[in-house]
Design a protein around this nucleic acid. Structure first.
Lengths: 354, 354
DNA sequence: CTGAAAGCGCTAACAG
DNA sequence: CTGTTAGCGCTTTCAG
């Protein structure tokens, strides 16, 4: 690997000059710049980024921590950040936080040791006590995480409004017996989406019954269990707001096992609009969560602040309804069709064919 | 950020000694080691990895390039590598290659500049002319990519046998009219899986008709188009081997639109066993591709070679059949049920309800 | 077992 | 506009 020294010798200039042409900036004669460029090309020169970082205390790369490297949620987020960073010729270093505070902190320390110029975090476990001092060390941007004092470096989605819209949509479709299944109730997303549900129900003058709300966890089995819980509680709902798509898939699966047809017997709305939402049958009606855009916005904000000192400002996204096939209008019928449905849900044996 | 100097002063030793305790190895008195450790803790010392890399020409991190950061295929691969690396206290730096030769090379150069100690590549565009010299610069390991001369640093899956098994299974279930849908035919995976199909058909004495093979691309729309092509060609098949799950999803979707019921009217088998395969209805019968395991094996192999000089050896995985719900035995009936099915497939109008 | 000293490859004032 | 001169923080001989 050739070094700057060799380049400088070949080009008959000082190392400083080579450094200058590398960093584009400074005033260098066109002729010497050309000579240097040629020398670099001739040697196949590649700057050693460790040396650059060490000397400049800057690395032209930003670190990102996500809970997992797979999964339909984090993938687009990583892709969104990578995409805008690449266009800006900055690099991305990703570390997994595994959803645990210790691992998340470790990942962050790793990235800092790596001299990242900034941090984009998609974490759930870290609080202000950790994050605020961290931000003093290295500019830190948050996706989907509220920390007072870091508002301006956050990109978030309006989960409350999303929950409200989803529920409102169900109501507009004629439903009034609407159950809600939440994710881990310590997660802010879960809390906010539930809040939105309550708001919509209240606003419509519909009762909120704790029996109709089941606290589960954001995974397919969580949806299955929640559905079973609903049945066990003899909840006669005609629609359910699953606070994320995985839950919705679980509900659809369990319903199907129980001989309940979605959307004819039961309407289901999800949240997130994960890729798979279009693969299931019926295709899932859900609230679109603009993961890629949010992530790239966060990256843009970070870039502007870190490399151009343009002060960041809080950025909020709104989830938008995507109508597909899992919600059906409840058409009132003379005999009270909604009750018929309720009956069916109540009385159907669990997993009759299995 | 405290430096090694401050630690050495606090501990009243030389920097060299601090370095020694950091790197575990050398002979250091237990007492001084303790003193140093305490000093490090007291100061909250964190080694600067850029400096370490620069001085040692080693970074304790390995680089990985994948085509995309999202998607059901690359996610588990990244997770597998990250998992075993983390356990070995090595770090992972991921870069996206976007499936283009130029970007893949750029990603690799980036990682090398980053002083990665080794490379794990999940690429499709790079050939031996590039890869072999690369391996001289930094140990390079390949996932799912055959390069003569790099065999021993490769982990791959037996796609041919997978295609064979999948087709064979269909045949065992009584099917004989079996279509095959391939991915981009320049991809080795596509070629091999098709080869497996042909082998099984031949072995069973079944005819191979080019009309029954449609070259498509590994995405859901690819499956839809392929299904339409099959119909346009009036191919009267009772089963289709889709050479990856996305294709299978597309087929299922198109079939459903056409009023054809999977698996009653048409059996479908996929390949990869992507997470979503369990979400669709009916759940997809497919060949399991052990992505996570393959990736972690590749990582293990890389670690052993790079840090312990244990010579690597080619590692092959076998895909395994996962029976779910999308394949149904073809029970011969007096009136020739398979013909009835064929008729239905032939005659059904395209997307009748849409 | 420990310290001194010489860089690793690059950047960043400071002169000129 | 370009060269000189110091380091950045750590590792690594080489002595002792």
């Amino acid at each position: 690997m050739p070094t700057i020294k060799e380049v400088s010798e070949l080009a008959r200039v000082s190392q400083a000059t080579v450094s200058r042409v590398m960093n584009g900036s400074d005033r260098v004669t066109e002729s010497t710049r050309k000579r240097v460029m040629e020398a670099m090309k001739a040697l196949g020169y590649r700057p050693n980024s460790a040396a650059q970082s060490l000397a400049s205390n800057r690395s032209n790369s930003i670190g990102m921590v996500v809970s997992q490297l797979d999964g339909p949620f984090y993938g687009p987020m990583m892709a969104g950040v990578e995409d805008t960073l690449r266009q800006a010729h900055k690099h991305l270093i990703i570390a997994a936080g595994h959803g645990e505070a210790a691992a998340e902190e470790e990942a962050i320390e790793f990235l800092i040791n790596r001299q990242v110029d900034g941090l984009i975090l998609l974490v759930e476990r870290l609080d202000a006590d950790y994050l605020l001092p961290l931000n003093e060390r290295v500019p830190t941007f948050l996706i989907n995480h509220h920390i007072k004092g870091l508002r301006n470096q956050s990109v978030w989605i309006d989960n409350l409004n999303g929950g409200y819209q989803a529920t409102r949509y169900l109501i507009e479709q004629g439903h009034s017996r609407i159950a809600c299944i939440t994710g881990q109730i310590w997660k802010q997303d879960a809390i906010d989406r539930l809040e939105g549900y309550k708001k919509a129900m209240n606003e419509a003058g519909l009762p909120i019954d704790d029996n109709w709300i089941v606290n589960s966890y954001f995974e397919v089995p969580g949806g299955i269990e929640a559905f079973d819980t609903l049945q066990a509680r003899r909840v006669a709902c005609t629609a359910v707001f699953a606070t994320n798509d995985e839950l919705a898939f679980g509900v659809m699966e369990a319903a199907s096992e129980a001989g309940i047809v979605v959307p004819d017997d039961l309407s289901v709305i999800g949240f997130d609009d994960v890729l798979t939402a279009t693969y299931v049958k019926p295709k899932l009606t859900t609230m679109h969560f603009p993961m890629f855009d949010m992530a790239s916005s966060a990256a843009r904000m970070a870039l502007q602040w870190i490399y151009q000192k343009r002060p960041p400002a809080e950025l909020a996204f709104q989830p938008t309804l995507v109508e597909r096939q899992s919600v059906k209008p409840l058409t009132p019928s003379p005999s009270g069709r909604s009750d018929a449905l309720a009956e069916q849900l109540l009385l159907s044996p669990k997993h009759p064919e299995k």
